[in-house]
Amino acid sequence: MFYPNSPQTSPQLTQIPYGQQYAMMQRQIQQPYHPFATTEPQARLYPYHYQGPIQQEQGGFITQQSTAASPQYVQMRVTPVDQSIMSGYPNQTANGSSSSSFNYNIHPQQQQQQQQQQQQLRHHAMPVGSVPLQDDRYRKQLIVNYLAPDVTSTDLHELFSRFGELDGARIIYDKQTNMSKGYGFVYFCHAEDAKEAVERMSGYEFHGKWLKVGYSTNPLNIVPSNSSPYVHAGSRGAAG
């Protein structure tokens, strides 16, 4: 039997160049792979992502010199942007860049009308829970959420009447099932009393439920100042 490094198959040491006398086997001759043993700084910083320098080929596509990437890492192929796409944008300079302001050559009167329309939209648009300043009635009506099913309009009136005089209180019921929808409205005579009720009743436990109280901004629920107070009856038909 002959071994790869046996004296019968191995040459004389004098015939082997210096430095390879003890590297006779194939696994010894093959050098191990060192990912950080390279002179390129990109490979030292990113050993798993770097795959060699990027070269520009004919046709405008950018390719990489090395083989496919590892399945664990996804390499994105980048193509140059066609400058003709950006030619339609206004205020574009000769080098292809555009300024931040756009001039669509709008007539001054049209621009003024658009600004007025935007101001009107901001004036009428009102986020949930906010209180408008032009109508004091919005500051007097509250919406009470997360009410228990057994709470009546009379219970709601008695709960909030300790903060001040009320114009009314009612629970909203479903017309088909005649069941409470879980929320109601309270109408105060003074805005200061309503503000105190919002601050003190939010998070209050009532009939096993934690109440959420806020201003009601729905104009359909506003009680006119010259109208008669609501009837605080315990029956659902009268309260709904």
Rank of each mutant, 00 (worst) to 15 (best):
P108N: 11
I143K: 00
R77N: 10
V223R: 09
A238W: 14
I16S: 12
P41W: 07
N221P: 13
Q110F: 10
V144N: 03
Q115I: 13
Y183R: 00
V131G: 05
M126N: 04
Y146Q: 00
M76A: 03
A148E: 01
E205F: 05
L220N: 04
G164S: 01
V144G: 02
T14W: 14
I85T: 06
V198A: 04
A68S: 08
K212P: 13
Y187A: 00
A37K: 03
S97E: 12
P4T: 10
S130Y: 14
C189Q: 14
M201F: 02
S97K: 08
Q134C: 09
I29G: 06
M179L: 10
L142G: 02
I16L: 11
A239H: 02
S228P: 10
P11L: 04
A238T: 11
L121G: 03
F185M: 00
V131N: 10
V128S: 08
A191L: 05
L166Q: 05
Y50Q: 06
N221R: 14
V151A: 05
Y89I: 06
Q141Y: 00
T9C: 14
C189N: 08
K195W: 14
Y204G: 02
Q113S: 10
N221M: 12
S227F: 14
D136A: 07
E196K: 07
L142W: 05
D150W: 07
L133E: 07
Q42Y: 07
L121D: 03
Q114C: 14
H207V: 01
A94H: 12
E165T: 12
N95L: 10
P149K: 13
D150Q: 04
M24S: 04
V151N: 01
V128N: 04
Q15L: 15
K140E: 07
A68K: 03
M201S: 01
R44M: 15
M24K: 03
M24Q: 03
N218V: 00
D150Y: 13
Q134F: 14
Y215T: 00
S6H: 11
G129C: 03
Q55R: 09
S202M: 09
A194S: 01
M76K: 03
G96D: 06
A233P: 07
C189D: 01
S70Q: 14
S99A: 10
G52K: 04
Q26I: 14
A191S: 09
Q65A: 12
Q28C: 10
F188E: 00
E158W: 15
F188Q: 01
C189Y: 03
A43Q: 08
Q30S: 14
Y138C: 09
D150N: 05
V78W: 15
Q15C: 08
W210G: 01
R122Y: 09
Q21V: 14
K175N: 11
Q26S: 09
D167K: 01
P108T: 11
G59M: 04
E57I: 12
Q72L: 14
N5W: 15
